[in-house]
């Protein structure tokens, strides 16, 4: 099962990297002296802004302590996308593995993951 999941993750990462690469090829080259305009309407309107920007950042600036870039700034291009994907997948694998260990394997085998639990009685055939 873990093998299947690992294979799926690899396929996902592989496909995703190729999609990003393909999307990059379609992008037109930048024209000198012309600044790129924001094309995503949602960003123009400020929709789906995180409350750390809209509330925490706002009050921090109001009190004279505006936020600054983190020491390890991964918020550069698609780097943040990569780290979120990576840690999201790692988190998902850890959750899935331990969930299986606690709730699937333990239940099916009748073994206890924690001490003090009585194993269920099995009927002899």
């Amino acid at each position: 099962m873990i093998k299947c999941f690992t294979a799926f993750v690899f396929i996902l990462c592989f496909a995703q990297s190729h999609i990003l690469y393909a999307a990059g090829l379609d992008m037109p080259a930048a024209i000198e002296n012309i600044e790129a305009e924001e094309t995503v309407s949602s960003e123009e309107e400020g929709k789906w802004t995180g409350i750390d920007v809209s509330i925490v950042g706002k009050y921090a600036e109001k009190y004279g302590h505006p936020p600054r870039d983190p020491y390890i700034n991964t918020d550069q291009g698609d780097l943040l996308l990569f780290v979120f994907t990576f840690f999201g997948l790692v988190g998902g694998i850890v959750i899935g593995y331990n969930f299986r260990k606690l709730f699937i394997e333990g239940k099916d085998n009748g073994s206890s993951p924690l001490p003090g639990q009585k194993a269920p009685r099995t009927r002899r055939r």
């Binding site: 995180g50 925490v56 936020p67 983190p70 999201g88």
Partner: peptide, 20 residues
């Protein structure tokens, strides 16, 4: 789970670097 955990940029309650 994997699809749910795919790329998202998180903005939330954490107090950001440099504020304190």
């Amino acid at each position: 789970i994997a699809l749910l955990l795919l790329p998202h940029v998180a903005y939330a309650m954490h107090i950001t670097e440099g504020i304190l």
